Structure formats: C-alpha cells, structure tokens
Amino acid sequence: MSDAHTSGVPTSGVPTSGVPTSGVPTSGVPTSGVPTSGANTPGGPRGVPVSSLAPLASLVSLVSLVALAAVPAAPAAAASAAAASAMPPPVRPEDRAGDHLTVVVAHAGSGRDGTYELFCHPGGGSHPDVSGACRVLDENTHWGKDTFAPVPPDSVCTMIYGGPATAHVTGTWAGRPVGARYDRSNGCEIGRWDRLTPFLPGMDSPV
C-alpha cells in the first residue's frame, strides 16, 4: 500500500533533462565591440582617449600660473600709486619758465638795502647778481622741500645777533607761490640767510 503511494508521486516525470539550456546562444554575443578599455583607465570618461586630454590639462595649468603671477601685482601697483601721490610733484621745465622773485632788503646798510627783481630760466631783472642769485636758488631747490622754509620752531639756536637786517621775498619759484621773511636774530636765522647769499646780500661786504 505504502509502495503504491510513494511510487505514484510524479517526481521522475519532471522534464528537467529536456530544458533547452544548451541551445542558448552565448557564444554569439558581440562582446568584442564594447569599448571597455576606456572605462577603467585613469584620465578621462568612457570612450575619450587619454591622449586627447593632455593639451587641455596644459592650458589649464598655464592659465593658473598666469593668474597666480598677477595676484601680487595689484597691491604693489596700489602701494606705488599711494607713495607717488604722497610726494609733491617734480619741478617741470614749464614751471621754471615762470621763476620771478622780488626781494625787499632793509636795515642791511648802504649799498644793500633796496627792492630787487629777479628772473631765472632765463635770468634777468634788477638784482645786482642775477647769475649768482639764480645759481644759489637752484642749489637749494630740492623735490619735496620748501626752498624758503622757515627755521623749525623746535630748533636749538645759538644766541648770536647778526644785526638788524631783514628781507622779504615774494613771487613764484618752481611753480609755487613764495612769501618768506628773513632776519639775523640768532644763529639759525643767520645760517638760513647765508645759505641764500648772493640772492640775499652778504653781510661781510657791500652788494
């Protein structure tokens, strides 16, 4: 009885051997035409030759170097411009064409007192020593400095009295207006006067 029921299970009749697995066309799949060599090679996306990316990489490197080299140039140019604007402008030839001074000397003694006009570049005027006066003024003219600047208030000066002589200078020098006064009341003022001799009269001999 048991033999009849177990033997009747249709296990042996399952058509496993008849499944057509051997007929699956695996060898005919066209795998040789798939571009797999470019998929896992470093340097580029699938299908792009690595050698074609080399010019692009060189161009990117060159642009980066140029950009880095240009970065410090802007602050340097700005600093140079700021330093240049802080200094007074240089003396131009057209400025020198208008050099004209009037000096009024008083209490210096006979032959020294008077009002004199001086022109420089070219020289001329009623000054008794035009060439010498223009020369000493040129020697004392420096970029960024006032040729006729007063003695600084904090200067330590010797108490030497050089006499009652005074001078008042007005006009235009190196394109800038001039209005300066001179005396010989102490060592500093005497030195300031003597630096501009013979534009100002020398006090050791008549003009």
Rank of each mutant, 00 (worst) to 15 (best):
R92A: 15
S61W: 01
S51W: 02
A165K: 05
R92K: 12
T102E: 08
L118P: 05
R96V: 15
L101G: 04
D154T: 14
P150N: 05
P153K: 13
S85Q: 15
L196P: 09
Y161P: 03
A165F: 01
R184F: 00
T21F: 12
E94P: 00
A77V: 11
R92H: 13
P49C: 07
H168F: 07
P45L: 11
T102W: 00
Y182H: 08
R135Y: 10
V34D: 03
G171L: 12
V178A: 06
L101I: 01
V136G: 04
F119D: 12
F119N: 12
G47R: 02
A174R: 10
A167T: 06
P128W: 04
C157Q: 01
D3C: 06
L118C: 00
V91S: 08
A70C: 05
P35S: 05
Y182D: 07
T102G: 04
S85N: 11
S22L: 06
T36N: 12
T141S: 15
D3M: 12
D129S: 13
T141I: 06
L101F: 02
G123Y: 04
T141P: 10
T6G: 09
A133H: 02
V207H: 08
H142G: 05
A174E: 12
H100C: 06
V9N: 09
S110H: 05
G179W: 01
G179H: 14
A74L: 13
P153R: 13
G23V: 14
G43R: 08
A78P: 02
A97F: 01
S12F: 10
L56C: 02
M203A: 11
V60I: 14
V50T: 15
S131W: 01
A73S: 08
P90D: 00
A39C: 08
D95T: 06
P20Q: 08
G23H: 10
P25G: 03
P201K: 00
V207M: 11
P75I: 00
